[in-house]
Computed example of a mutant assay.
Amino acid sequence: MSKQHKLSVLAELVNGSLDGDPDYSIGSLSSIARAGPGDLSFLDNPRLAAELDTTEAGCVIVSTEQETPDALNVIRVDQPVVAWAVTLELFHERKRIFETVSSAAFIGEGATTGEGVGVGPGAWIGDGASIGARTEIFPGATIGPGSSIGEDCIIYPGVHVYHDCSIANRVIVHSGAVIGADGYGFAQENTGAPAEPVVHRKIQQVGTVVIEDDVEIGANTTIDRAAL
Rank of each mutant, 00 (worst) to 15 (best):
Y162V: 00
D214M: 08
G207N: 11
V198A: 06
G128V: 15
F42Y: 15
L228C: 07
V209D: 10
I167W: 02
D152A: 03
V171H: 09
G126A: 12
L88W: 05
G146A: 12
V101A: 14
R201E: 14
T221E: 04
R76H: 06
V206Y: 00
D152K: 07
L90H: 10
G207E: 03
V81P: 00
S25H: 02
D44S: 13
V62A: 07
T64V: 14
L228G: 03
M1E: 10
Q188G: 12
T68S: 01
D70M: 03
A11I: 11
P157T: 03
V62S: 02
T54F: 12
E115I: 02
R96W: 10
S28M: 10
V9G: 00
L43F: 08
A219F: 01
A226L: 13
N220Q: 06
T221A: 11
T222V: 08
K6R: 14
V210D: 10
N190R: 15
R96H: 07
E67M: 01
Y184H: 09
G108F: 12
L88V: 00
G180M: 06
T142L: 05
I75P: 03
E212F: 08
G183W: 12
F91M: 06
N190C: 00
H92V: 05
Q205W: 13
I179G: 05
Y162H: 09
L88A: 02
A111D: 09
G116I: 06
G158R: 00
G27D: 15
Q188N: 11
G120E: 01
T54V: 13
L43G: 08
G126H: 07
R76S: 07
A195Y: 03
F42V: 06
A195R: 12
V173H: 07
A133R: 13
P121F: 11
R34L: 13
H92E: 09
L29C: 03
V215E: 01
E12N: 15
E65I: 10
V161E: 09
S130G: 08
V82L: 15
A177D: 02
F91H: 04
A33K: 14
V119N: 04
F186A: 09
G176D: 02
R94M: 01
D127L: 08
F91G: 01
T208S: 15
V117M: 05
